[in-house]
Amino acid sequence: MSSLSLVPRKGILAALWLPTDVHGNLLARELAANLAFLKRHRVHGVLALGSTGEFPQFDLEQRKRALATVAELAAPLPVIANVSDIRPQAVAELGRFAARLGLPAIAVMTPGFYPSTQEDALAHFLHAADAAQLPTFLYNFPELTGTRINVETVAAFADRARMAGIKQSGHEFAYHEELIQLGRAKDFPVFSGSDTRLPEVFALGVEGCIGGLVNIAPDLMVHLYEVCHDHTGGEISPAFERLREIGRIIDRLTFPLNVAAGMEARGLDPGEPKAIVSPRSRALYAEIVAELQRKFAEWQLEPQRTS
């Protein structure tokens, strides 16, 4: 069976949060509980070490250990390894490591920090795909990387590499339409990071979602996928309104710490913050946890089992 046949082409994938201790070490027991929660609610796969996973906070060896741990604990779910880095050597090394783990695909963003031309971004993506020898997702999140992946660059990559798909994140919602049109022509799926707009993205023709809110409300998101994408019958409401309410509440805090607050409210242990957090943000975090706990109790959403 080819590796491309194992790559998820649709579904709800968790942009996986990685719980760590105060020293930045991965907490395997807490991660296992988080993944068990996702599996119980029938998510279709995970993206490891993406922006929600705070990959820039880890050094290269920590990222390798995290990938290996996620691959073990997430099985049998497919795991996409985000190998994005400003350093081409690190991208190549992570991609080769993902291949040795037997993961089905990698994902790669533009390098970040320094600006990239479209030609340089394409060369960076091809370098990643060649090193890993795995199907590759492009990962567009210009608000974080500083460089948009233009549709011509996506097309050029699809013509020259095994393109697994693209994840479209950020504020440019209308860009989904161009990417979907190109994906139909080049035979690759488009995944969205627009967690709170699932009925809209599925109506456009998006095949799935890779999102941070999956860590908090996989049940709501899988339900919306089944109703809006698979047309299994059922109501969009109240799941859609509840998901938007979760998004509204957590967006008072910066990403991705807001994901941790939502997880804690759901009964999951997100570990310690990986970055310095101000007293004001800690207070806001506690307010969000308390508010969401009340909401989840009101909605009778099942909490994570702690035993």
Rank of each mutant, 00 (worst) to 15 (best):
H171L: 08
H231F: 09
S192M: 08
E93D: 11
P104C: 07
H41G: 06
T254M: 08
G146I: 01
T153E: 01
E178Q: 14
D85Q: 09
F188I: 01
A260M: 13
T306N: 07
G112H: 15
A132I: 03
T145N: 01
P8E: 02
L103M: 14
F191C: 12
P303F: 12
A105G: 02
L31S: 14
P111M: 03
S3V: 09
D219P: 10
T306M: 12
T20D: 06
L301K: 00
L204V: 10
F97M: 11
R162T: 04
H127R: 14
A98H: 10
A90G: 11
N258D: 13
P199D: 15
H229N: 05
L35V: 11
G95M: 11
A90N: 08
T52W: 01
A32S: 13
R65Q: 08
F240S: 14
R244N: 11
W17T: 13
A164R: 00
P199F: 06
F255T: 02
S281N: 15
Q304A: 04
Y114C: 09
R87P: 00
D219S: 03
P135M: 01
M109E: 12
K10F: 07
G102K: 11
A283K: 14
P273F: 01
R252L: 13
R294I: 04
N25R: 11
P104S: 10
L49D: 13
I236V: 10
V46D: 09
A239Q: 02
F55V: 01
P56S: 00
F191Y: 06
A128C: 03
R305T: 08
F202S: 01
A275V: 06
L103C: 10
I149K: 11
E264L: 03
A155M: 05
D195Y: 06
V289L: 00
L13Y: 04
L144D: 14
A75M: 09
W17L: 13
V222S: 10
F37Q: 06
F191W: 12
V201W: 00
R266G: 07
V79E: 03
L179M: 10
H44Q: 10
D120K: 11
V289P: 02
A48N: 00
